[in-house]
Design a protein around this nucleic acid. Structure first.
Lengths: 262, 262
DNA sequence: CGAAAACTTGAAAATTCTCAAGGCGGGTGG
DNA sequence: CCACCCGCCTTGAGAATTTTCAAGTTTTCG
């Protein structure tokens, strides 16, 4: 483990989830009974609560990351998978030629580090874009549990499959959409994620710079900036620094649907 | 199974693998003892041969696909994974907006259909670009075997992980390379695959149209065509219809390394 | 052999990048 | 507390890349 600014273990942050969907200015964790990590893991992984007993044997270690902290660095030995409890992280792919690209943004419930399995080494950096909490799930234990428990095994495979599907969507975006469509898709994707997490889907704060958005979308920061301005002029969104309001969701969706390459 | 032009079962095609690396005009299968599918699966999956006994319980079904035949169509129920024995196939991603993109080309040893797991439904088309043979591996049996056999389980997970890594490389290509770099990377990738399979890495026949190459690379067919011409003028390759000779591999690699977005 | 599909090439248009300059904002040290 | 600095963002103009449209050629296959 080469991550530096990591403190552990974590006492869950006790911030009650407001009833009305709040503007997400900072991602916080739901209230969880202290020490009962297993039950929370059930939720995070999307398993039924009767699996909590089984998950207890995983030996999940909660970790806290300060903003800017590195959870994984390319080249780190692979020992565990990670699942995000709270906060916001990015994954950065690196290639031989100094090429690099943000390949994903991660929040509550996302799984990190899967690609390390085949090479026993992680192939990308994972960095916290704000104070975050993750659980480290020792991979050996995951394998053991999978051998024991069919439902758990199915769930793990399902999870892997979903990760591939997510990449497929990114590939479709990079390969077939033009700039404005990519940004619209990106904004709506974030919106959807926040909605599922119980936050306002129509107003949120970006956790990444224009440059990072551009990297993820295969565009330059200037293009992102210009598009934000244009979308605002067209009345589809309102941008104020990193705060975004989606004013015309329908128009954004229409923009994605129409045209594109070819 | 909605695939139509499928005949089964298969008597392995008996074409001896020439000693000198032949120009790959048509992908053929290596000689395999009749009926001993399990042993061949070991090779295809990259498992040691002592796993053949275990693999026998998979109940792998060989299938033969004529050129143009559809192995999977988006929406098909998920029941099995497939592994390519011979031939050449493409995967086509489809999205709501009529958007579609070739997301991969597959040959000897590649696994298909992984993304179906999470939704119980396949989300992309798989089409044979030439006469091909695949094994269908009933997913239930894969799960059962995984519960029984740790090494097999590890291998399956490893395989999934590798598939994600493959997507990562495509994302890097689409997100950070310009047209000429993408094509160079594509040609070298094919070359590498053929080398591993024991065919000439410096001369091969493309199995797909310019349009399909373009779709995979996020470019138009005209761009592909122009780039082929230009690469030829620059003496890096020689193209004659679908036959490609790589004349200056170093130049191609240099082209990928240099520059790009940003 | 003929039709259809695939490919090449040109020219103009559109998109996106690059380079450059300036503004905003938040945090730090004086 | 204020000024300053640094990172981040915006905007413009010109350049480069890639697409689009159009026409003609070659190849494939029944």
């Amino acid at each position: 483990m080469r991550a530096l600014a990591i403190e552990m273990p974590v006492a869950p942050v006790r911030v009650p989830l407001p009833r009305a969907k709040p503007v997400l200015r900072s991602v916080r964790s739901p209230v969880v009974p202290r020490e009962d990590h297993a039950r929370e893991l059930c939720t995070l992984l999307g398993l039924e609560s009767d699996m909590a007993g089984v998950l207890g044997r995983l030996g999940a270690t909660p970790m806290r990351l300060r903003k800017g902290a590195v959870l994984l660095r390319a080249g780190d030995p692979f020992t565990a998978l990670y699942i995000v409890r709270s906060g916001f992280l990015k994954t950065v792919l690196l290639s031989q030629g100094g090429r690099n690209q943000v390949s994903g943004y991660h929040m509550h419930g996302d799984v990190l580090g899967i690609t390390g399995i085949s090479t026993d080494t992680h192939d990308c950096d994972v960095v916290a874009l704000e104070d975050s909490e993750v659980y480290a799930l020792p991979f050996e234990r995951i394998e053991e549990l999978s051998l024991d428990n069919r439902r758990f095994q199915q769930h793990i495979l399902c999870l892997f499959s979903r990760e591939i599907t997510r990449r497929h969507n990114i590939m479709l975006m990079l390969g077939t959409m033009r700039a404005e469509q990519r940004l619209a898709a990106f904004l709506l994707e974030l919106s959807q994620r926040y909605l599922v997490m119980g936050y306002s889907p129509s107003e949120y704060v970006l956790r990444m710079t224009r440059e990072e958005i551009g990297s993820y979308l295969g565009l330059t920061l200037e293009t992102i900036s210009r598009l934000c301005t244009r979308f605002q002029q067209q009345g589809m969104i309102q941008v104020q620094g990193r705060t975004v309001k989606l004013l015309d969701r329908v128009a954004l969706k229409r923009m994605i649907g129409a045209g594109g390459l070819q």
